[in-house]
Design a protein around this nucleic acid. Structure first.
Length: 285
DNA sequence: GCCCAGGTGAAGC
DNA sequence: GCTTCACATGGG
């Protein structure tokens, strides 16, 4: 049986697909020749950078691509974001080096779970753990070409049924207890992720940080990459050391001071500034 | 073989 | 409040 192939194209300026998909905000994208392949939500998709934007393919999408345009944030004008940045040498260099870097808008649960798994792991290892988790506990994705298998990120309800020991078989170590607890709380409704969109960012952060294994940094990642709070500014070791070097002459500035600095220096799109700096620090120099 | 990773929580000052 | 340490695992 032959299914109809679905493809579309998003015209968009200033969108560097590779930088965006490899900048440590999402962990499921795989390079496939000149294309990028992943499961977004419940659907398999293949993307290519094209002249005036991004080409997308899936199977049988029915012509509605809202799920993907929202994920990719193709309607956002990057220039208006960059124009809000403070004019300092470090950020200027990062923007020049990483032009077209974007923030994705990911599913909050997948984002939360992925970043719970991220602590003291390299990005390549996070990707491996997430891949094993999806293969083991995710249902098959829709929209896959014939002969391709791909799996949806497992739901909280599914992971809540899985024992800590079973989760450890995905090689996530001590993070298994945290992931399981997060899944249980979301599945049973004691944490309502769907209500956090409407909260002030401080309140949403407080709720996320009630989950064991979720501290300030992971909470800020979820706020930024999952909920779209553009002011959230996750400070990991790269950003912390980068800020100390670029803004404080390598003085031993405390994390608390860095948080205060980031909160009033980078403006309403601080999260974007953070992503530019992160990618710049890791790859751009 | 050693080092360290998009951290967090608990325990010690 | 700040510092130190354990926590699993494996790629470089």
């Amino acid at each position: 049986m032959k299914r109809s192939q679905g493809s579309t194209s998003f015209p968009v300026e200033d969108y560097d697909l590779e930088a965006t998909l490899t900048s440590g905000q999402a962990f499921r994208w795989e390079s496939c020749g000149d294309a990028w392949v992943a499961v977004v939500g419940t659907r398999w998709v293949r993307l290519r950078q094209s002249k005036g934007g991004i080409q997308a393919e899936t199977v049988g999408s029915g012509g509605d691509w809202k799920w993907l345009s929202h994920y990719l944030q193709v309607d956002l004008c990057l220039k208006t974001v960059v124009d809000t940045f403070p004019d300092d040498p470090a950020l200027r260099a990062a923007v020049v080096a990483c032009g077209g870097l974007r923030l994705l808008r990911q599913d909050p649960w997948e984002c939360l779970a992925s970043f719970i798994l991220s602590s003291t792991k390299r990005i390549t290892q996070i990707r491996q753990i997430v891949d094993r988790l999806c293969r083991q506990y995710g249902v098959p994705a829709t929209g896959t070409p014939e002969g391709v298998s791909a799996f949806v990120f497992p739901t909280p309800a599914r992971l809540a049924q899985v024992s800590e020991m079973e989760l450890r078989d995905c090689r996530m170590g001590f993070r298994a207890r945290y992931l399981r607890e997060a899944a249980v709380r979301v599945a049973e409704g004691s944490i309502r992720l769907d209500q956090l969109h409407a909260c002030p960012v401080e309140e949403a952060r407080r709720v996320l940080m009630e989950i064991p294994g979720v501290g300030r940094k992971i909470a800020d990642c979820v706020l930024l990459f999952g909920f779209g709070f553009q002011g959230a500014f996750p400070i990991d070791v790269w950003i912390a050391n980068g800020l100390r070097e670029l803004y404080f002459q390598n003085q031993p500035v405390s994390l608390r001071q860095l948080l205060e600095f980031s909160a009033d220096h980078f403006g309403p799109f601080a999260g974007y500034a953070q992503q530019f700096l992160f990618h710049y620090l890791r790859t751009g120099r």
